[in-house]
Design a protein around this nucleic acid. Structure first.
Lengths: 269, 269
DNA sequence: GAGTGGTCTAGACCACGGG
DNA sequence: CCGTGGTCTAGACCACTCT
């Protein structure tokens, strides 16, 4: 099945041993060369298949040899595409086992998405207590963050997250209800700690990257009470937009963190 | 000259066509295989030469072919090492030109090291006004941040940085005086905006990566005055340790940022 | 032992930059 | 024109995993 969508463009390429010809002369005067490496085209094709959920998180992809034959390229070229996908954390590769669609886990949440660490740098996932989970109509801010039309339905979750038993984060989450049918009916107790695992396993929404905007704000009375601090205490506000494999926003999350005993840690490299 | 420090360990490798033999039977029962890919060994050797300043920032390295011959490996293997160095931003490669030792520039400072952006996401390097530049003895904090012995000399710079003409960042910088001889004698007016360019061109200290710890703090009276805000205003504190090519700390910098009109922007991927 | 990804090689040709 | 890095191929062997 799936006989390799074959429209690979081999621009002025050397050793194409017999396949993917038929488009050589059609750009006599192509002002823009439009050269695109084969491995890059293969990569895009594989992303398309991943986005179409041809393979699910945790599944094994076909072997390098099989995919190379399917696309009519050498194993080396195909490997380059797969390695690029691994670098973007879309797949995981293990020698002797195979190539697997990346799956969310507590460890991944901890290292890729959760950056608050203790004074000594210890990483630890917080425990969460959801306060509520409701549906509503997208505000202007939600429409902008999630690229929604006016009137779109959103589901909102509010929760407090604890580290070492102490409340440290007050979090407001908004997602498009269309992507997560039924989520709004969940009771707060039924909202798990690592939401991205839920998004993935229950709704097929794979969060692969995010962008965060940080600023310092003064605690309002509500957050202050939730976090057990005085009103006006400086808090670290983390405004995150999470993107799926197609780079579309799927979640907007604003966290306000009490940073008396924790840091937001990030590497510049 | 420099006839390729040849002690590459070729463990159970296949097609070694005649070079780098002589160490085949000496690990009959090596419990730990200690396998290390050739390209990784080459990479380490190149890093050593870069750290030794055999080539200076902006210089061209020898061509792939030349280096491959020097180390007695194939061009493909050598390329893998160079590509890894490029991924770590130690070198820059340009088709048709060559491979060059990475050089600090305003652009690099802006994208790799400066993360404060305007509301719309515009990136812009701030202008700096140094308040003072003095020598002193390392405090406990400086010793920990910079891995210094008790009694070590440090040079401290304090400055205020402006965006769109408004003071936004109050910054305290400490560096080991031993690494930057003469820096402490600079008049504040002689302290340039992009310090890492100065470190590199004047002192041969190449900052290649950094780690930042962020938290929210209340403005003290001093910062408040410098930034033109009320005392107690929440500020984003950015605590940075900058590392050189050998991963040793070379600068400690604490910035306090007024984030009413700017964000700290970071990507999670 | 079979199958997977990982490393290494050798060689061909292409895209790019600058004489 | 030549020299550079970039792409692609083909094939060999190695390391790892599981049966």
């Amino acid at each position: 099945m799936s006989t390799a969508a074959r429209s690979l463009i081999l621009f002025a390429q050397g050793t194409h041993t017999g396949q993917a010809d038929s488009e050589e002369k059609l750009m006599e005067d192509a002002i823009t060369p439009e050269f695109r490496p084969l491995y890059s085209q293969i990569k895009a094709l594989l992303i398309k298949r991943l986005a179409a959920r041809e393979w699910r998180p945790g599944d094994a992809l076909p072997s390098e040899a099989a995919l190379a034959q399917e696309y009519g390229v050498s194993q080396g070229t195909l490997r380059k595409a797969l390695n690029a996908l691994e670098a973007e954390r879309l797949v995981e590769r293990r020698q002797g086992k195979g190539t697997f669609v990346a799956k969310h886990s507590a460890a991944r949440s901890l290292f890729q998405f959760f950056h608050l660490v203790g004074e000594g740098g210890e990483r630890q996932l917080p425990e969460s207590r959801a306060l509520n989970c409701r549906g509503g109509i997208a505000t202007r801010g939600e429409r902008e963050a999630l690229a929604l039309e006016a009137g779109a339905a959103v589901t909102r979750i509010q929760r407090v997250r604890h580290l070492d038993g102490q409340p440290v984060i007050s979090e407001s989450i908004s997602v498009p209800s269309a992507l997560f049918p039924g989520l709004r009916e969940r009771a707060p107790e039924e909202v798990p700690n690592t939401l991205y695992e839920l998004y993935e396993s229950r709704y097929g929404v794979i969060v692969v990257r995010a962008q965060e905007r940080l600023r310092a704000v003064a605690a309002g009375e509500r957050e202050a009470a939730l976090l057990g601090v005085a009103g006006g205490t400086p808090l670290l506000e983390v405004d995150r937009i999470a993107l799926n494999i197609e780079k579309r926003p799927v979640e907007w999350r604003v966290s306000r963190c009490h940073t008396a005993h924790h840091f937001y840690l990030t590497d510049l490299d």
